[in-house]
Simulated scan of single mutants.
Amino acid sequence: MRNVLREWRAELKQTFTGTRDAVPDWVGRLEEGDDTGYHLPGSAVWAVHGSMTTIVAGIRALLMQALHPGALAGVYDHSRFREDPLGRLAGTIRWIFTVSYGSTAAAREASAWVLRLHESVRGKYVDGHGVVRSYSANDPELLRWVHIAFTDAFLAAHKIWGGPIPGGPDAYVREWAQAGRLMGVDSPPLSEAEMRQQLDRWYDDGDLRSDERVAEMVAFIRNPPLHPSLRRGYRMLFAAAVSSLEPKYRDMLGLQPPRLGPFPLPVRLGTKVTLGVVHLALGRVGPSEQAARQRLRRLGFAA
Rank of each mutant, 00 (worst) to 15 (best):
R268G: 15
E11K: 05
P262Y: 02
P24H: 08
G270A: 13
W95H: 14
A10K: 04
H68V: 00
V131F: 01
R2I: 09
V267K: 03
V285F: 00
K13V: 08
A241G: 11
V278L: 14
G74L: 02
L230N: 11
S134E: 15
Y172N: 04
A241S: 11
A241T: 04
R232F: 07
Y101S: 11
F220L: 12
G184S: 02
A105V: 06
H68E: 07
S103C: 09
R133P: 10
R29A: 14
A22E: 15
M195F: 00
L230S: 09
D77Y: 01
W176R: 04
F220V: 12
V45C: 09
K124L: 13
G128M: 02
D204T: 06
L72Y: 01
A66L: 08
L296D: 05
F220Y: 13
S210V: 11
V45S: 07
N3H: 09
N3Y: 05
L12Y: 05
L199I: 10
R88P: 11
E119A: 11
R108Q: 13
L63K: 02
T104C: 14
G70F: 04
I93T: 08
A179P: 10
V132Y: 07
D204A: 14
E83M: 02
K272N: 15
E31S: 15
G254M: 10
Q290P: 02
V56D: 01
Y249C: 06
R144W: 09
A157V: 05
G50Y: 00
G42Y: 08
P257H: 05
G167T: 05
G28F: 06
A171T: 12
G254V: 05
V242T: 14
L67V: 09
D77N: 04
V173N: 05
P264Q: 08
T92D: 09
A90K: 01
A156F: 01
R144H: 10
L282V: 03
A110K: 03
H147I: 05
P189R: 04
P266E: 08
A149P: 04
R9P: 06
E141M: 07
T271G: 10
Q197T: 08
R232V: 15
G18V: 02
Q197M: 10
V121N: 03
I221R: 02
V99G: 02
P228W: 01
I93A: 07
A107I: 10
T15E: 14
D77K: 03
L237M: 13
G123W: 03
P258V: 02
Q294H: 13
G50R: 03
A193L: 06
P225A: 03
M64D: 11
K13Y: 06
M52G: 14
I59V: 14
R2W: 00
Q197S: 11
R133Y: 00
R6D: 15
P140Q: 00
P247G: 08
E109H: 11
E119H: 09
A106G: 07
Q290T: 15
W113T: 12
H279I: 00
P228E: 04
L155H: 06
A44L: 03
V185S: 12
W176N: 13
H147N: 10
H147E: 12
A22P: 00
G58Y: 01
M183C: 06
